[in-house]
């Protein structure tokens, strides 16, 4: 007799286990959704964790207003298909209210301003667990992050005083006012994510694939031309290039890479052969050696 046998892969099984623990241990979880490949992967894992029931928590997007339009369109379509609630909070609101000051100049970015909006939203809705798509292989401060990462009222990460995580037991006990950031795909690498998207035929925003785009060069990186959100010197010449994005953040802090990979198979091949790390195209990490650690201490996710 032929039997139909399932062996769930170690990383996928671990991620689903973690997401299920979040729903069991917390009262008000939320999935932080950026429209990037990692959070899209999280959404698929959450679907798998609770099928045939719907995903039992909302998605939340902290919108900087500097997103690629393709990402926003994609986000809205996905949410409609899944029938889950989407919460959007805008960095612009905090800027308008004078709560935060927008950066100016050549390297201006709203990346850091997201933290304030995120913390406000956590308080507004009373979220006690925020599921995020950060991975330990991305950056060396993240390599030390726990799966359940406890944050205080100010969202601060106390990296020297983290709870040990033994076997797969996850301690989600917190005091009122604290919340936990949860990273189910902590142990995935960039290639693991891309291979998963390929295997599962998960749809992703079109900017991840090669396309013609108006760009300019600065510091050896390829920047998108968008006069509203990306500052450009007059002598920084616009040129149309065949590019794609390897990581999707704000237009003002995400550089493109030259590529002809126009489908998922080609992208996976390109990543496999790549000699540059994913964060190499993140302008926000280039600020200093400890840029990520500092942002995380201040509540960045």
């Amino acid at each position: 007799m032929n039997t139909n046998v399932i062996r769930v892969g170690a990383l996928e099984s671990e991620a689903i286990y973690i997401i299920r623990e979040v729903v069991a241990q917390f009262e008000k979880p939320v999935l932080l959704f950026s429209g990037g490949k990692d959070s899209i992967t999280l959404v698929r894992l959450a679907q798998k964790a609770f099928y045939p029931a719907k995903i039992p928590f909302p998605l939340m997007h902290i919108d900087t207003g500097h997103n690629f339009p393709e990402t926003i369109e994609f986000r809205d379509r996905l949410v409609e298909e899944l029938g889950v609630e989407l919460i959007v909070r805008n960095v612009q609101d905090n800027i308008d209210a004078g709560k935060v000051k927008e950066e100016t100049g050549k390297y201006a970015s709203r990346n850091i301003l997201q933290t304030e909006t995120l913390l406000d939203a956590i308080e507004e809705f009373g979220f006690d667990a925020c599921i995020g798509g950060a991975r330990r292989d991305e950056e060396k401060a993240r390599a030390k992050e726990r799966i359940f990462s406890v944050r205080d009222d100010f969202g601060q990460w106390d990296e020297k005083n983290q709870r040990p995580e033994l076997f797969d037991m996850l301690n989600g006990r917190i005091d009122l006012g604290q919340n936990v950031r949860v990273f189910p795909i902590s142990n995935w690498t960039e290639l693991d994510v891309w291979s998963y998207i390929q295997k599962e035929t998960i749809e992703i925003p079109s900017i991840y694939f090669a396309h013609q785009r108006d760009t300019f060069l600065r510091d050896g990186l390829i920047w998108s031309v968008n006069d509203e959100v990306v500052y450009r010197e007059e002598d920084e010449e616009v040129e149309e290039r065949m590019v794609r994005f390897r990581t999707v953040g704000d237009m003002s802090c995400t550089a493109a890479v030259i590529s002809s990979a126009s489908n998922i198979d080609a992208v996976v091949e390109e990543i496999r052969a790549s000699k540059i790390s994913e964060r190499g195209a993140r302008i926000d990490d280039k600020r200093s050696e400890a840029a990520m650690e500092k942002r995380k201490q201040q509540g960045y996710f």
Binding site: V5, A10, E14
Partner: peptide, 29 residues
Amino acid sequence: IQFFDQQFDEAKKGSSINITLEDDVNVSR
């Protein structure tokens, strides 16, 4: 034995799955 939208006859150890039972017994977290 269910994993996402598919049914299986058998699951290997290490798998995060979803199962149903024949009888209406009381099971909780």
